[in-house]
Design a protein around this nucleic acid. Structure first.
Lengths: 163, 163
DNA sequence: CGGCGGTAGTACAAGCTTCAACTAACCCCT
DNA sequence: AGGGGTTAGTTGAAGCTTGTACTACCGCCG
């Protein structure tokens, strides 16, 4: 490239918002991750996996579904689940219907961990984000990132069709 | 830690916005990083460093200032700058006033890299975020994360650390 | 059937980030 | 002057993520 003679730069206001978002997100993610690690010895990704599993039938989910639900790579989920298995928070179980498949199953320890950690996490999310914003502003955040996700999810998997 | 018998959970709307934000941010960051890597062989962090340097007097900045400006750890900046030095995008230079200090100085190649990459990056930011939101919603995003940053920076600055 | 393309998950290596330890230099106070 | 406490930055190892390659399995079409 390098031929872009016409670039539609961000104006001052947009630039300011963009930078605030980058920095705020950086700080927020690290803060929430740190709180979970220090108080409950789990990472934010691990916490999220526990949440997904707790919401699934039987506390179990296929690896690929887990990966898609969090927009993490398959490889990443394999590693994370491996660590969680070492920590006895989940077990791996061969899928019934598809012999290639593997299900991650939440253990009792995993469920207890989630129950312990959830209040910490919610308090953090409120203290560092939700309660700092007006309801309208927070709703705007939701609108924006729903749009972002939609766009990126439907734009990227060009491997398949999308009728 | 069952210190919380009363937890102020998120309501359905807040939860939905929060999840959209987590997933959208995940997708967005990876997308922007990928675009820069594929088209210009630099990571998003490296790009950000180039931006900061380009805005500084003489294209040079102290390591600590760079770290603070991006809310990255000192160690992370050391490693990132080391990689960029290998790639000839910056040079290290001893600081005049403080013999402990080190300045990162942008090279000509670094400046060219930024000039090449900037249009790609801005296009990405617009396509995947800015242009998907209304001006008001995007302003709300700015307000929220300015508040988040302020709170996290002033809430737990230097000490008051762990012990 | 038999093969061929597609999907599920893992393995391994390379890359990036974090954490704690460490050196060097600064500041200030007596 | 000299020492305690602080700050700047680096180092190296450990941990997490990514990318690619690889095995195993599915499903369908002929």
């Amino acid at each position: 490239m390098g031929s872009a003679s016409e670039v539609n730069w961000l104006d001052a206001e947009q630039q300011s918002s963009w930078r605030a978002y980058i920095m705020g997100t950086e700080l927020l993610q690290h803060q929430l991750d740190r709180e979970l690690r220090e108080e409950h010895q789990i990472s934010f990704s691990e916490y999220e996996i526990l949440v997904r599993l707790s919401e699934a039938e039987g506390g179990r989910m296929r690896m690929a579904l887990l990966a898609d639900a969090m927009s993490h790579s398959r490889s990443r989920v394999t590693h994370t689940i491996a660590r969680m298995e070492d920590a006895r928070l989940v077990r791996r179980h061969a899928a019934e219907s598809d012999r290639r498949g593997v299900e991650a199953v939440m253990t009792d320890a995993g469920r207890r961990k989630l129950i312990d950690a959830a209040p910490t996490h919610v308090r953090g999310v409120r203290a560092h984000l939700v309660d700092l914003a007006s309801r309208e502003d927070f709703a705007a955040l939701g609108r924006i990132f729903n749009e972002v996700s939609d766009r990126l999810l439907r734009g990227m998997p060009e491997d398949a069709d999308i009728r």
